[in-house]
């Protein structure tokens, strides 16, 4: 069965095709008091991220003499889910906070900022499955907005298995009722995975399928991230300059391959 046929026959709970992302919107520089910020809408997910730093570490004993520290906070607003959830940090919040840090750390030159901290605060305003991926995607845009040098942008999305099929970008219903869930964070230019988690049971082939599908999804998300940054920093007259640079990059890549 070709993927095209599958696409025609198999429609998901929300009417999407198996390899289709939810509508994605990213905006950068939304918070005036943060050094960098971003807002993401991925389907019904609505998340706002603020980045502060590099700045002095408080409490000071957490600072490291040879590198900076990346501190994250993932928090779901009490009104983000139905029914209302407690505003106190849950086990899940603590886990995603850690996961966010692990996913973003490889992309940041922390060693350039010894004795400093970069703080990322993410607040989930509305949740509909896949918030950890959306948070990582938005955080990476906020980090660029804050002017922090990075190895690459980090894009994240999840794949999973629902009703025996591998699908991209799971919604809340698919996440809860599906057989497996594989969130992945990916640096598209460096072609490196920075986060890989798996919940549920998959065969080795299914797992590989999930990875390649996720990577395709991350590449699409990366384009939206770039658009969000371009919208804030690159004025229209610079479009030509971007084209020029892209042309050069492509040319240089082809030359190197030869």
């Amino acid at each position: 069965m070709t993927p095209k046929k599958v696409k025609e026959e198999f429609l998901r709970v929300d009417g999407r095709a198996w390899d289709e992302l939810r509508p994605l919107k990213i905006e950068s520089g939304v918070l005036s008091n943060a050094d960098g910020s971003a807002y993401i809408e991925m389907g019904k997910n609505k998340i706002i991220v603020g980045v502060f730093g590099p700045r002095e570490v408080h409490p000071k004993h957490l600072s490291k003499p040879h590198t900076g520290v990346l501190r994250c906070r993932y928090h779901m607003a009490p009104f983000s889910t139905d029914p209302r959830r407690s505003p106190a940090p849950s086990r899940r919040d603590t886990e995603i906070t850690m996961v966010m840090r692990y996913a973003l750390e490889p992309a940041i030159f922390l060693e350039r900022y010894p004795r400093s901290s970069i703080d990322i605060y993410a607040e989930v305003l509305q949740a509909d499955g896949g918030t950890r991926c959306a948070t990582i995607t938005a955080s990476s845009v906020a980090l660029v907005d804050a002017g922090i040098p990075m190895r690459d942008l980090v894009a994240a999305c999840s794949t999973g298995k629902y009703n025996g099929r591998i699908i991209l970008d799971l919604g809340d219903y698919e996440d809860k009722n599906g057989e497996a869930d594989v969130p992945i964070a990916y640096m598209p230019k460096l072609e490196q995975i920075t986060l890989l988690q798996m919940d549920g049971i998959l065969t080795a082939e299914e797992f590989e399928q999930c990875i390649s599908l996720s990577i395709e999804g991350c590449k699409k998300i990366y384009e939206v991230q770039r658009e969000a940054i371009k919208k804030k920093y690159v004025v229209e007259k610079s479009e030509k300059e971007i084209e020029k640079a892209e042309e050069f990059i492509e040319e240089s890549r082809v030359e190197d391959e030869q």
Partner: peptide, 12 residues
């Protein structure tokens, strides 16, 4: 060609 072009983090 490259003079003045705009690049994003991670670009080769």
């Amino acid at each position: 060609k490259i003079q003045g072009g705009i690049v994003f983090p991670g670009e080769r």
